[in-house]
Simulated assay, not measured.
Amino acid sequence: MRIGELSDRTDTPRRLLRYYEEQGLIVPARSPNGYRDYDEYNVDRVMQIRGLLDAGLPTRIIKQILPCLNQPRIIHFPDATPEMLATLEHERDRMTQRVECLARNRDAIAEYLDAVRAKMHTDTSAEPAMSG
């Protein structure tokens, strides 16, 4: 697929996709005319990258951990530094806090919806039947 289709499917601007390529996060094939040619794999990869960026990870760390996302059980970091490990631990802890906050918010919204629906159901069933 061309860059425009990848952009549409991932809701990622073309310019940002080119940046991911410059950073070595995605690697498209090139057609004979020089156009970028992305395969289906890149759709998931871009979504992974965006999720990691949204979580606060810098691209230099993302580039190092992306290979682990392909085969998570085969993890080997010959270039893992104490700084990188500390960064990942910090980001993991931040993600955990965000997940807990999101779960609390989701539960609060679900309770609100349940209460509103129950009230609506009660109000509807309490209305007198109309006679014709």
Rank of each mutant, 00 (worst) to 15 (best):
I61S: 05
M84E: 05
D39M: 11
R15H: 09
P82K: 08
T122F: 11
P28M: 09
R98K: 00
M47V: 06
G24S: 06
M84T: 07
V99N: 00
V43E: 14
T59P: 04
V43I: 15
R104Q: 08
G51Y: 00
T10K: 06
M47Q: 10
G34N: 13
M120N: 13
G51K: 01
V43W: 06
I75W: 06
F77L: 11
D79H: 07
M84R: 04
R15Y: 08
R2A: 02
D114K: 15
M120H: 09
F77I: 03
K119E: 14
D123V: 07
V99R: 01
D79R: 07
D93V: 01
G56M: 02
Y19M: 10
F77N: 05
L17Q: 13
L113A: 10
T96G: 01
D123H: 05
R14G: 06
H76R: 14
E100L: 04
Q97P: 00
A115W: 08
N70F: 08
G132L: 11
T96R: 06
A55G: 08
R9M: 08
P72V: 15
Y19Q: 09
D93Q: 04
P67V: 09
A110E: 10
R94A: 00
E83M: 07
I61T: 05
R30T: 03
L69Q: 12
L66Y: 08
D8I: 01
L16G: 08
M95Q: 00
L17D: 08
L85G: 05
L17W: 11
K63Y: 07
G51N: 02
L113Q: 05
F77C: 06
G56D: 02
S7N: 03
G24C: 08
I109F: 10
Y41K: 15
A108R: 11
D114L: 10
S131Q: 12
T124E: 14
D114H: 14
L53D: 02
G56C: 02
I61P: 02
P78C: 12
Q48P: 00
